[in-house]
Design a protein around this nucleic acid. Structure first.
Ligand SMILES: [Mn+2]
Ligand SMILES: [Mn+2]
Ligand SMILES: [Zn+2]
Ligand SMILES: [Zn+2]
Lengths: 140, 140
DNA sequence: ACACAATCTGCAACCATTGTTAGAAATAAA
DNA sequence: TTTATTTCTAACAATGGTTGCAGATTGTGT
């Protein structure tokens, strides 16, 4: 994801308005490595602007995802996770116990072509590694 | 997944009762390569036993998953998919346009250990390859 | 400052899934 | 077979996450 300042540019270029709510979402995502849910982005935003609705957060997250500035992950933790790191191709590590999501910089399936049926256009590939993180394992 | 007959055995062994509803679910899953949703299992079951509720189908699918007879996949198509193929380890190919899910027999990330943080207990890894299937690509 | 289009909020609706419970059905005991 | 025990089913309500909607509000170019 670009910096909040650059996003402001891009939004303007598309005829979209710059509102304080949107900027607050940009800020909440910027350099955020936690793969937050919409709910947790909302919490962060509300800490500074108490009136912002969850609906608006979803709206902005969807807009950013549509522009390719962030990506939306479904890792089976109930709610979608949003990832501002679209620059580096990477995969994810998920703790099944606390829901933590971490980046995993691993190259995946080199000879993928072999088993993909003729005519299928591959768009992307996501690896999710599941397990328990250290702090969850220590708990019992 | 075992045959419906063998599942009948296993259910009895666990003190679970054999009902026609359950047998119908066993039958719907047996040798089914489509990775059906609960809804589509329900449709198949209802074709023979019109009164079976969706709740009962979910119940049985959960029981089977808990026993390890089937697995539940979250591939981002909205609803969970159920996979009776737990014998062969494999991954999946998903058409983003029609939701089709196909098996992908590919070996994944051999040197995975490198980037997994110390103390994280890996339970499993799932690769999802996304794109458009041939018939969807042909449509436009 | 004005006008207009885009946006925000609050709420209702939606979808997939699970909780609840009274009555029905399968199994075990007699 | 009849009865007793235990589990299951169906129907319905409730949940969590997300989106649709409408009227009030607010950026933005003039
Ligand atoms: Mn990431
Ligand atoms: Mn499969
Ligand atoms: Zn954890
Ligand atoms: Zn398709």
């Amino acid at each position: 994801m670009r910096t909040p300042a650059e996003l402001t540019e891009r939004f303007r270029a598309q005829g979209l308005k710059i509102t304080p709510q949107r900027v607050a979402v940009f800020d909440a995502l910027h350099d955020n490595p936690t793969h937050p849910t919409a709910e947790s982005v909302h919490s962060a935003v509300v800490a500074r602007m108490p009136t912002v609705s969850l609906r608006t957060v979803y709206q902005t997250l969807n807009d950013l995802a549509e522009m390719g500035e962030i990506s939306r992950l479904e890792v089976g933790t109930g709610s979608a996770r949003f990832d501002p790191n679209v620059e580096e191709r990477h995969h994810h590590l998920v703790c099944e116990s606390c829901g933590m999501v971490r980046d995993l910089h691993v190259e995946v399936a080199p000879e993928l072509g072999d088993d993909v049926p003729e005519g299928f256009e591959v768009v992307g590939a996501e690896l999710v590694v599941r397990g328990r993180c250290r702090s969850c394992a220590d708990k019992d």
